[in-house]
Design a binder for these strands. Structure first.
Length: 796
DNA sequence: CAACTAGATCTTTTT
DNA sequence: GATCTAGTTG
C-alpha cells in the first residue's frame, strides 16, 4: 500500500492555484476541429466521444489528458486511462508527452485493462484468496489444467474438448459471473457439467495460487463489489477516467468502469459502434449504445471529419456499413480530393490472387500504376483469417518480396520460449505444478506418463506440490533406474537455481543461461555429439528449425537484461504477449483485419471476399443474422484502413481443408456503392499469352452457378460481368492453357514440367486431374495439373 | 520408454 | 495441408 500514499492528500488548494495559473488559452487546443475541441473541453461529467475511423480520436483523447493536466484538474497519477492493447497505451503515452513537451513518467494508471487490474489485484490479493506472487496463466496452461479436471471427472475429452470448456468459462468470466452467479439458463453448458467444472477450476487455480486472464478483471470487480472501502479508495484516487475503444468492452469491464466512475462520473469513453469487432470474445456493443442511459446527462460528441481516406474510400465503406441496423449513426466526410475508386477484382483461385497482388505491389512500388510510387511500408494485406496468409507468404518468398506478418505466432507463445519460461517459473515458485509437468521430461529424461503419474500420486498423498512429490519419489525409490537419477538431478538443480535467484547473484540473465544450459534444454536442439569424449567439439543446431529456436532462446535471454530479477520478467511477459523487436527494412505488412484496427496504410489489399470466408462460415452457420453484422463491421474496418488506394478481391476457387471448393463472392461486394468502385479486369496472369483462360473458366463456372442462386443478378455482380465481357471484344479468348481433364490429357508420363513452387520435375504418374511429379529439388509431390506448365514456352 | 504411423479434426478473430 | 492423438513397434 505504500505507493498509495502519494495521492492520499487531495491538495485541493494547490489544485485550484494551479488552475488559476493555467493559461486561459492553450496552444494545443488550436490544433483541434470544433467537434474535437468540444470533446476535449468538456472535462467534467460523462462524455461519449463517437469517433469514426480516422477522425483524430487519439489526438482528441491525448489532448484531453493534456488539458486535464494543464488546467490543474488532475495530477498525472489521478488519471485512469484505459486501453485494450499495450501498443495503444504506449502510443497514448508518447503522444501526451509530445504535446506536453515533456516526458510523462508520472502516469502510472495509463495502461490496458489487464495490466491495471494486475496492479490493483497485487495489492488486495488476499481478499480473493490469493497469496503474493500469484502467477498469471496463459491460454495454454489454462487448457492443460482444464483437461486434467475434465479427465478426472471421467468425461470423454474427445466429445467434450477442454477447449470448449475454456471458451464457456471465458464467456462467463467476461460477463462477470462467478461460479455462484452463473444463471440457470446456462445449466446445460458443457454437457450440463459446466458450472461444476467451473467451480472446480476456480478452486484449483486458488490452490495453485494462479489466475487466468479473465480472473484479472473478475477478481477486481468482486473485490470492488464486496469491499466498499477498497472501492472508495480507488474512486477517490481516479478523479478522471478515460476509456479507449469503448465499443470493445465486455460486461466485466463495463461493471469495473461503472463501479469506479460511480462517485464523480468524470468518465470519457471513446469509441465507434461501427468498429465493434470483438463480440466473439465477449464485447458488448450494447455498452456504447446504452451510454447515455448509464450515465445520465452525458454529453455526446461526434467526430465525423475524416483525415485519413479519400472520398471514394469513405463512400465505399459507408455504403457497406449502411446495411447494418442498430447503429448510432455517423457520416464520415472529408475535404480531400476524390482520388482513386475502390478497385475490385476477381481471380481464378487463391494462388492467382496472391500472385496478382504480389505483382501489383511491385508495380505500385515502381509507380507504374499511374500513381505515385509507394514504399513497401505503405502497403498492407488484410485478411479475414490467418490461414489466408500462407498463400501470400509462399508467393512473396518465391518472388523475393519482403514482408512482415503482424500478430502472427507470437514470440512468447513459441514452444521453446514457453519451455524456458516454465523452467524459470519453477525456479521462482517451486509449487508451480503446471510448469513442473511441462518440463519434467523436456528434454527427455526417461520420465514418461507412468513416472509422472507416480509423482502425482505421491504428491497428492502427502499434500505437497509435484516438485516435492518428485523428491520424495526419488527418496522412496518409487521411481527406478535412469529416470530416478535424472529426476534427482533436476530436483537438486532447481533448488540450486532457486538459491541463485534468491540471492540475486549472478544476474538474472546469467541465471537464465545457466538454467537453460545445465537443464540440458539448449542441448536438446543441438546435433548429437559425434565424439562424446571431445568436450570442445563445436555444436551445430540439428536443423533449420532448431536454429530458429536457439535464436529465439538467445533473444529471450537478452530480453532479461532489462530486468532486476526473474520474477519481474515473468510478470512482464505474462501481460505483454507481443514481440517487440523492431525491423528497419522496408516490408509489406500482412495481418488479420482484427490486428489492423487502429492502423492505416496508403495502400490496402483486401483479399478473400467470399461467402464462407468473409463472412466466415461460422457466422453463416450460427442461427441469427447478428453475426453477419459484426462481419460487416470488419469489412468497414478493412476499407477504412486505406488512405489512398483500396483493392478488394475474391477468388472463384479456394482450397478449404485441403479440398478444392468453388467460392461465391461475398455479399459485401454487392453492397459496395457502384459510384465508388472500379472493376479491374484480370490481366494475363500466366504470362506468355495464355492467361485469359482463367477468367474464362471462372466466368462459365459463375454462370452455371448463377442459375441456382440469383445472387449473381445483383448489381455488383452484373457490373463485374459486364466489365469482363467488354474487356474481351467478341468474347474471344486467346490460347487456353487449362485446367481440368482436358489439360491433363495434354500431359504425358515422363514429361518435364515446371511448377511455381517446386520448380522443375518429371511426371511419373497421372491420376485424374492430379499429377505425381518427381521434382528435382522438392522430391515427389502430387500436384493439381493446372499448376504445372510444360517446359516449352508454348506448351499447347 | 521413445519413435514412428495412421487417423481424425480442424480454421476465425485475442487481452 | 497441418497438427494433434491414439495405437503400434523397436
Amino acid at each position: 500500500m505504500s505507493s498509495f500514499d502519494e495521492s492520499e492528500a487531495p491538495a485541493a488548494g494547490s489544485l485550484s492555484a494551479r488552475a488559476m495559473a493555467a493559461r486561459p488559452t492553450a496552444p494545443y487546443l488550436d490544433d483541434l476541429n470544433p467537434a474535437q475541441r468540444e470533446a476535449v473541453e468538456a472535462l467534467d461529467g460523462p462524455v461519449l466521444m463517437l469517433a469514426g475511423a480516422g477522425t483524430g480520436k487519439t489526438k482528441a483523447l491525448t489532448t484531453r489528458i493534456v488539458h486535464l493536466l494543464n488546467t490543474g484538474k488532475a495530477r498525472p497519477h489521478e488519471i485512469l486511462a484505459v486501453t485494450f492493447t499495450n501498443k495503444a497505451a504506449r502510443e497514448m503515452k508518447s503522444r501526451v508527452g509530445r504535446t506536453l513537451g515533456e516526458a510523462v513518467e508520472g502516469m502510472p494508471w495509463m495502461g490496458t485493462f489487464h495490466s491495471i487490474c494486475v496492479k490493483i489485484l497485487r495489492r488486495h490479493q488476499e481478499l480473493v484468496g490469493l497469496r503474493s506472487n500469484f502467477t498469471i496463466l496463459d491460454t495454454d496452461d489454462q487448457i492443460r489444467l482444464l483437461k486434467q479436471l475434465v479427465r478426472a471427472a471421467g468425461i470423454d475429452d474427445k466429445r467434450w474438448p477442454a477447449r470448449a470448456l475454456a471458451g464457456v468459462i471465458d464467456q462467463w468470466k467476461n460477463r462477470a459471473w462467478t461460479p455462484d452467479n452463473v444463471p440457470v439458463s446456462e445449466a446445460s453448458a458443457y454437457d450440463g457439467k459446466g458450472v461444476a467444472l467451473y467451480r472446480q477450476y476456480q478452486t484449483r487455480l486458488c490452490e495453485l495460487n494462479a489466475v487466468d486472464f479473465g480472473d484479472l478483471l473478475l477478481h477486481v470487480v468482486t473485490i470492488f463489489q464486496t469491499h466498499p472501502d477498497v472501492l472508495e479508495q480507488y474512486r477517490h484516487r481516479f478523479r478522471y477516467i478515460l476509456v479507449d475503444e469503448y465499443q470493445d468492452t465486455n460486461v466485466a469491464q463495463y461493471l469495473w468502469l461503472r463501479l469506479l466512475a460511480g462517485g464523480h462520473s468524470n468518465i470519457c469513453c471513446v469509441g465507434d459502434d461501427d468498429q465493434s469487432i470483438y463480440g466473439w470474445r465477449g464485447a458488448e456493443v450494447g455498452n456504447i449504445l446504452r451510454f447515455e442511459k448509464d450515465f445520465p446527462g452525458a454529453k455526446v460528441v461526434r467526430l465525423e471529419q475524416n483525415y485519413r481516406s479519400t472520398p471514394h474510400i469513405l463512400g465505399a465503406a459507408g455504403g457497406v456499413i449502411a446495411a447494418n441496423k442498430g447503429r448510432l449513426g455517423k457520416e464520415l466526410w472529408t475535404e480531400t480530393e476524390a482520388g482513386e475508386k475502390v478497385r475490385l477484382i476477381g481471380h481464378w483461385d487463391g494462388e492467382e490472387e496472391a500472385r496478382w497482388i504480389g505483382d501489383e505491389i511491385e508495380a505500385m512500388q515502381r509507380g507504374t500504376r499511374g500513381l505515385r510510387p509507394f514504399s513497401l511500408d505503405d502497403m498492407a494485406i488484410l485478411v479475414r483469417a490467418s490461414h489466408q496468409m500462407r498463400a501470400f507468404e509462399d508467393r512473396f518468398l518465391t518472388i523475393g518480396l519482403p514482408y512482415r506478418v503482424i500478430g502472427g505466432p507470437r514470440f512468447y507463445e513459441r514452444m521453446e520460449i514457453r519451455d524456458a519460461m516454465a523452467y524459470f517459473r519453477l525456479v521462482i515458485s517451486p509449487s508451480d505444478d503446471l510448469a513442473f509437468e511441462r518440463v519434467v521430461n523436456t528434454p527427455k529424461r526417461g520420465l514418461g506418463e507412468k513416472a509422472v503419474q507416480t509423482i502425482q500420486r505421491i504428491a497428492r498423498e502427502n499434500g505437497v506440490p509435484l516438485l516435492d512429490g518428485a523428491a520424495m519419489a526419488v527418496e522412496q525409490g518409487a521411481i527406478k533406474g535412469k529416470g530416478a537419477q535424472a529426476l534427482g538431478k533436476l530436483v537438486m538443480d532447481l533448488s540450486r537455481w532457486g538459491r541463485m535467484a534468491g540471492a540475486g547473484e549472478p544476474s538474472p540473465r546469467d541465471i537464465a543461461e545457466i538454467i537453460l544450459d545445465e537443464s540440458g534444454y539448449t542441448e536438446m536442439w543441438l546435433k548429437p555429439k559425434e565424439d562424446p569424449d571431445d568436450p570442445d567439439e563445436s555444436r551445430q543446431p540439428k536443423d533449420h528449425e532448431a536454429e530458429g529456436r536457439l535464436e529465439n532462446l538467445k533473444e529471450l535471454v537478452k530480453a532479461l537484461e532489462q530486468f532486476e530479477n526473474l520474477a519481474g520478467f515473468l510478470e512482464h511477459v505474462s501481460l505483454i504477449m507481443e514481440n517487440e523487436s523492431e525491423e528497419q527494412a522496408e516490408k509489406v505488412s500482412i495481418m488479420t483485419l482484427h490486428a489492423a484496427k487502429g492502423l492505416e496504410f496508403p495502400v490496402v489489399f483486401l483479399p478473400g471476399w467470399e461467402e464462407g470466408l468473409f463472412p466466415s462460415q461460422r457466422t453463416l452457420d450460427a442461427p441469427p443474422e447478428n453475426g453477419v453484422e459484426e462481419e460487416r463491421r470488419l469489412a468497414y474496418v478493412g476499407i477504412t484502413r486505406a488512405e489512398e488506394v483500396c483493392t478488394i478481391s475474391f477468388a472463384g476457387n479456394r482450397r478449404v481443408f485441403g479440398q478444392w471448393q468453388s467460392q461465391r463472392p461475398s455479399r459485401f461486394i454487392d453492397e459496395l456503392p457502384e459510384a465508388h468502385v472500379e472493376v479491374l479486369t484480370p490481366p494475363g496472369l500466366y504470362g506468355g499469352g495464355y492467361g485469359a483462360a482463367a477468367s474464362m473458366h471462372e466466368e462459365s463456372g459463375l454462370e452455371a452457378r448463377a442459375a441456382e442462386a440469383n445472387v449473381y443478378n445483383s448489381p455488383g455482380w452484373r457490373r463485374l460481368r459486364e466489365a469482363r465481357m467488354s474487356s474481351r471484344p467478341g468474347g474471344q479468348t486467346r490460347g487456353a492453357a487449362v485446367i481440368d481433364a482436358q489439360a491433363v490429357s495434354k500431359h504425358v508420363v515422363g514429361e518435364r514440367v515446371f511448377h511455381q513452387k517446386f520448380g522443375y520435375g518429371a511426371i511419373i504418374a497421372i491420376e485424374g486431374d492430379k499429377l505425381e511429379i518427381a521434382f528435382e529439388k522438392a522430391g515427389v509431390k502430387k500436384v493439381v495439373a493446372r499448376f504445372v506448365t510444360g517446359t516449352d514456352d508454348v506448351p499447347f
